[in-house]
Each structure stands twice: as C-alpha cells, then as structure tokens.
Design a protein around this nucleic acid. Structure first.
Lengths: 111, 111
DNA sequence: ATTTTCTACAACCATTTGGTTGTACGTTAG
DNA sequence: CTAACGTACAACCAAATGGTTGTAGAAAAT
C-alpha cells in the first residue's frame, strides 16, 4: 500500500520555505551525503551554534531532515523521500504546462 | 551552445521563496495553464488587488513568471523554463543521496 | 568529582514579509 | 469629454525570519 498522502498547502509552504536559504540547502546536502551531529554542522558555518540549531529545526519541521538522539549528540540525516516528494510537486507544474501545449497543438491540427 | 548558467545562491533563494506561498503557487499554476492579466488573477483571490500585484512581482523577481504590457493590462505568463530549472536543482540533491548509497553498496560488496 | 561537550530554549533585535489603504496616471468605453 | 478600468507605487502595520547572547541540563571525558 502506497501511503503517499498529498501534502497540504501548509506542508508545501514549509518545504519550499526551508529550501529558500543557502545555509539550509547546504545542511541538506551534507546530511544527504552522510549523517552529522548538530555541532559538526555548526562547525562548518560562520554563525552561532544556536543559529545552526534553528536552521536544522526548520529543515526538520519540513520533514527534509530527521534528528535522532545518540548519547549527548543529535544525529541529523537528510530525508531522501521528502526530496523525492518535492520533485513530484514540481513535476505537476510541468504537467500543467505540457497539457496547455497539447491543447494548443490540438487547435493547430486541422483534423 | 547551451547557456544554462548555474543560478546563484541568491537566485535559488528567490525561486524557493516565491514557491513557499500557496497563493503564488496557484498563480503559477494558472499562468502555466494559460496567460492572465493581473486583474483577472486578482479576481480569483480573497485579497486586495495590490496584494496580488505583489505576489506576481515576487514570482516575476524569481523568473517564474513574465509580465508583458498589453494596452492598459499586464499579461502574466508562467515560465516553463524556470520550472524546469527548479526540477534540475532538486535532481542534484537526489544525485548526492544516490552517490552515498553507491558508496555504501561498494563497502558491502566483498570484492 | 569536576570539567568539558553537546544540546535545548528563552529573550531580544533588525529586517523582511504579506497584507492593508490611498493616491496617481495611462488606457479604454460611453 | 468624461467616466470607468487596470496598473503602479508609497506608506503603514502586524507577524514571521534569521540572527544574537545567555542560562541550564544531560552525557562524556579527565
């Protein structure tokens, strides 16, 4: 059974909003490439630990990343399923456009 | 010659930010499906004309939409090329994840 | 046992965002 | 010509964003 519930507007808002920041996109890249603790991530950026913590929270709130406790650390992992879902969303816009082109083609066809 | 210059961080910020609002996503859908004037768009939403005008401006700033004068109206059209570019961006995240999986597979292979 | 490390969270601040109303101006209709 | 329409733009406002510092607590290292 494929769950694949259609995401709500608010969820989509959160996903795109999370992606609308270069630091967060970089965190997503890193954690898709391999897991990292919050402090390891924080070391990579020229901002406070708390700021990076917030960025991770935004990504987590969007479902793009998961955070799992491991001793005193929190391990952050990129969520490939969520990324896939965003692509699916974008596909829908392309479908709309292709449908329009198809209609225009149909108009031009002299059958 | 394929132009396809890699978009800057700021450009990507603008694109995702533009998509992080349900009204703007709806405007994009409509204008990919078929052109519309700003006032036609405004009639579709429960907010002021000026608010819709701003949403269109955000989409235009992100390159997701173009605005062309036609008499006293401004015709808004969705830009399929920009949509395609966003998809390409998302693809890169998936590539990163697939590369990781490939590495893990290589580790497990006992050759 | 003490200190250090990693995290959580609150409080604060400047800037941006998403909305409003109001004014002004070019374009089309009567 | 005058009125109505479509747009642009400024000014304003509340809320959200992206950053900071500071405090506190749990886990690990010495």
């Amino acid at each position: 059974m494929v769950v694949e519930n259609r995401p709500s507007d608010a969820e989509v808002d959160r996903i795109f909003r999370a992606l609308a920041d270069a630091t967060r996109r970089d965190i997503l890249r890193r954690t898709l490439d391999g897991q990292a603790s919050v402090s390891q991530l924080a070391a990579a950026y020229d901002m406070s630990f708390a700021a990076v913590q917030k960025h991770v929270a935004v990504l987590e709130g969007a479902g793009l990343v998961t955070k799992e406790p491991a001793g005193r650390e929190r391990i952050v992992r990129g969520n490939p399923v969520a990324v896939q879902r965003v692509r699916t969303l974008l596909d829908q816009y392309e479908q709309i456009w292709r449908a329009r082109i198809a209609r225009l083609d149909a108009l031009l066809a002299d059958d």
